[in-house]
Design a protein around this nucleic acid. Structure first.
Lengths: 128, 128
DNA sequence: CCAAATGAATTACGAGCGTAGTCTAAATGA
DNA sequence: TCATTTAGACTACGCTCGTAATTCATTTGG
């Protein structure tokens, strides 16, 4: 109980990703799953896992002679942190510039636009 | 001519910020401007500035016995990089989850929503 | 029962970052 | 002219990260 919201590095986030998809898992499973998508050395993955446990982003429950690992930080919480951080760091905390940016520089398909409209409708309805 | 898009650290971004607002500026001006918003030591700010020059994010033009500094990386370009990076790292490259996230977890005022709608209209019109 | 395998803990090591301090060369004020 | 100021260059130092290798304690196969 030290850090309210541990920070996850790029590399570490790939380990979290497999734990968010399924948990708990043994380190062996985690290594295998991470290696599906990367060519990292087993040692590297175990190091990352250890660091995640050390910083409280992952829980390790002893299971016999080994551990089973589960995320201690929810994916949504992490997404929240990261989004907020981008918003503050890069866009002065305002959402519209972010959106404007995406509208100018990212390719938004008709599908995306429709989806965003639905989202806005839903938000408005909820908010009132 | 080394790095296409230099990466800017958190601390460095505050220096960029003052250069994006006005350029060129002397280091003295930059130090003063950054200190308006922070309590960083002058040496710290000069170090950050030097690193930005070293990594090609800032240009230094000699002006007599000193330099005048200007951004070599455009703010929009940086915002683009950072946004894209968040999108890929955290939301699997898809915009809707990002938006959905904001709609759930950030406070969107009616004003924001209206603005976003207008943006979507504009995008759609432009796209066709 | 003992050697090999395995999972975890510890250690490594260079790059970047946050946060300065020191050194140097040039300009300037007395 | 000479000491002082100042801007920039170079050095420092502990921390995190990416990327592992080494050591240690068990377990397990033969």
């Amino acid at each position: 109980m030290s850090n309210l919201t541990p920070t996850i590095s790029e590399a570490e986030s790939h380990v979290m990703e497999v734990l968010w998809r399924r948990a708990p898992q043994s380190s062996e499973d985690i290594v295998a799953a991470v290696q599906q998508a990367s060519d990292w050395h087993e040692k590297t993955i175990r190091t990352l896992l250890g660091r995640l446990v050390a910083k409280g982003a992952v829980n390790a429950e002893k299971d016999g002679r080994r551990y089973l690992y589960s995320p201690a930080l929810a994916r949504k919480q992490w997404q929240s942190q990261e989004s907020h951080s981008l918003l503050d760091r890069v866009f002065g905390g305002r959402l519209s510039p972010l959106l404007a940016h995406f509208s100018e520089h990212e390719k938004l398909g008709a599908k995306d636009i429709a989806e965003l409209r639905k989202l806005l409708d839903a938000i408005e309805k909820k908010g009132h």
